[in-house]
Amino acid sequence: MMKKKETIRVENLSTGYHSKKGYNIITKHINASLFSGELTCLLGPNGAGKSTLLRTLTAFLPPVDGQIFISGKPLFNYSDAELAKVIGVVLTDKLMVTNMTVDELVGMGRSPYTGFWGHMSDNDHRIVTDAIDLVGISNLRGRMVQTLSDGERQKVMIAKALAQETPIIFLDEPTAFLDYPSKVEIMQLLQKLSREQAKTVFLSTHDLELALQIADRIWLIDKSHGVTIGTPEDLSLSGDMSMYFHREGVTFDAESGMFKICHKLGKSVRLTGSNAPYHMVKKALARQGIDVNNDSHNPISIEASEDGYTINGLKVKSIDELINIVTDTIDS
């Protein structure tokens, strides 16, 4: 693997919007770096300032305070044309284009390099083909963009960013509106690009668990705590994850690095058994607010194993049936 290199450095950055009353500051005093070959995820609740931060880093918005350096050079020293060759973006903006093929759209990524008339050279065509192959959408090349699914369109825009040949790619919620397999696919693709192409990939997302599994580095952001940065594992152990995402009924399980919904458990049953059936029954009981307590002289005793389920010696066919009997018995 290539040695990672600092591509973006942020010093004492404050982001926000300029309004009539002065500055409306959203996030203050961020000090951080982004590295090539790494996938960094920006996580935070709605309204925490994710988009503002992303827009500031892509030079769509001027910073309220502080400095952003790209490859050591201040961001405001880049012209629009220079920046187009350094940062590629994939946005949530709805694409209004119709009657444009995937090939043409990815080809738009070459426009910072083409001349006055926008004519594409053989080399430009080759780069477009490479980008399309890399994202794995060569079967879509001739399709019109309005006929694509959300996931396919997201891949096309990623291919556009690749054709732009920028060392840095920013993505604003690339997994929003996608079904779960597509979310995973997009995240894996981005991880692959960061590794194989040594790109600096930075994206905002709401898909917490996916980000925790795939991201090399996480930026946590919210209104009260500001920005905290680290690997998913460090943030889990330090308790920052629980702090940022603390909600009624949700706990962060540091052991698995996953969020768990905690059900309010009141009543309990005895449960014995083994392996997957045991865990599945336990999970189904938890959803009903029923805990497992084997010490008690509980009137209900359940056995769950690969051979089947029994409740107080009575054999039942499915967990569905089991739960019905348990809830009936407990309530009466």
């Binding site: 892509t58 920046l83 973006v89 946005l91 709805k94 284009v97 738009m108 426009s111």
Partner: peptide, 17 residues
Amino acid sequence: KTLNILLLGDSYARNLG
């Protein structure tokens, strides 16, 4: 060329320089 880039919307167009 300008018109073609504008088709993508303001933000993408800006990002393309």
